[in-house]
Lab assay of single mutants.
Amino acid sequence: GTVHVGDKTYHFPTPDAAKKFAQEIAKKLNLQVTVKNGTWQVH
């Protein structure tokens, strides 16, 4: 899975790992999470 946070991109071996990371970052930074075609965006 891929997660975009601002101008950074993180790659994870599984979709679940990407989802978990995106949700944790969003919670920590009080941001929104959207997913499109398996790519997570934190914004």
Rank of each mutant, 00 (worst) to 15 (best):
G38E: 06
I25W: 07
P13A: 13
Q23P: 00
T14S: 10
K8G: 04
V35S: 09
T9W: 12
K19W: 11
P15N: 12
A18K: 00
G1V: 08
K28A: 11
P13R: 13
Y10F: 11
K8H: 10
V3A: 04
A22Q: 00
G6K: 06
D16N: 10
N30H: 09
V5P: 01
E24R: 14
T34P: 01
A17S: 08
H4S: 08
G6L: 14
P13M: 09
V5F: 14
E24A: 14
I25Y: 07
Y10R: 01
G6H: 09
D7K: 14
G38K: 05
K27L: 12
K8I: 09
Q32M: 12
T34N: 05
V42I: 08
A26Y: 02
Q32E: 10
V33L: 11
K19P: 00
I25A: 05
G6P: 01
K20D: 08
H4P: 00
D16I: 09
G1H: 14
F21Q: 00
L31V: 12
F12L: 04
V3H: 01
H43T: 11
K36Q: 12
L31S: 07
A26W: 03
F12D: 00
T14D: 09
Y10L: 04
D16M: 12
H43E: 10
K27N: 09
L29I: 03
A26E: 02
A22E: 00
K19Y: 12
T39S: 13
T14E: 05
V5G: 01
Y10P: 00
F12Q: 00
E24N: 11
A26M: 04
H11D: 05
H4K: 14
L29S: 05
F21V: 02
H11V: 09
N37E: 09
T34S: 12
V3M: 02
V33M: 07
W40D: 02
T14Q: 04
E24Y: 15
A26Q: 03
T34W: 07
P15I: 10
H43K: 08
P13N: 11
Y10T: 01
T9V: 14
G38P: 02
V33T: 05
G6Q: 06
H11F: 12
K8C: 14
T2C: 10
T2S: 08
D7L: 13
P13Y: 07
N30K: 07
Q41Y: 15
P13E: 12
F21W: 10
N30M: 07
P15D: 12
P13L: 08
G1F: 15
T14A: 04
V5H: 05
Q23E: 14
K27C: 10
K19S: 11
F21S: 01
L31K: 05
G1S: 11
K28W: 07
I25G: 00
T14F: 05
H4Q: 14
K19N: 07
V33Q: 02
Q32F: 09
H43R: 08
V42F: 05
Q23Y: 15
F12T: 00
V35E: 15
P15W: 15
P13D: 13
G1N: 13
K28G: 05
T39Q: 14
G1P: 09
K19I: 06
L31P: 00
A26T: 02
K36M: 14
E24F: 15
Q32K: 12
A18H: 00
V35F: 15
I25N: 02
G6S: 05
Q23A: 09
K8Q: 10
K36N: 13
A17K: 08
V33D: 01
E24I: 11
K8Y: 09
H11Q: 07
K36C: 12
W40K: 01
A22L: 02
E24L: 13
D16S: 11
F21M: 03
K28P: 03
T34V: 08
Q23V: 12
T34Y: 10
V42N: 02
K28C: 09
V42L: 07
V3W: 01
D7N: 14
D16H: 11
A18N: 00
A18Y: 01
V5Y: 10
Q41P: 02
T14K: 04
T39L: 08
T9R: 06
N37A: 05
N30R: 06
A26R: 03
H11L: 09
V42R: 01
T39E: 15
W40I: 07
L31N: 03
N30L: 05
L29G: 05
P15R: 14
I25S: 03
K20E: 11
A26P: 00
V33Y: 06
A22P: 00
L31T: 07
P13K: 13
K28V: 09
Q23M: 15
T39W: 06
A26F: 03
D7I: 10
L29H: 11
N37H: 05
A26S: 06
T2A: 08
T14M: 04
V3N: 00
H11I: 09
H11K: 09
V5L: 10
L29Y: 15
H4F: 12
K8L: 09
N37Q: 06
I25D: 00
K27P: 01
G38W: 05
P13W: 06
V42H: 02
Y10D: 00
K28Y: 08
K19V: 05
A18P: 00
N37C: 07
K28I: 11
G38Y: 08
T39H: 15
P13Q: 11
V3P: 01
N37G: 09
K28N: 06
H4A: 07
K36E: 13
V33I: 12
A18Q: 00
G6N: 08
P15V: 11
N30D: 07
Y10A: 01
V42S: 03
V33R: 01
Q41S: 11
A17R: 07
T9P: 04
V33S: 04
H11T: 10
A26I: 03
A17V: 05
T9N: 04
Q41F: 15
K36H: 14
Q23I: 15
L29P: 02
G1R: 12
D7Q: 13
Q41D: 08
T14P: 01
D7H: 14
D7S: 14
V42Y: 02
D16V: 08
N37Y: 04
I25R: 03
K27M: 11
H43A: 11
G1I: 07
A17C: 07
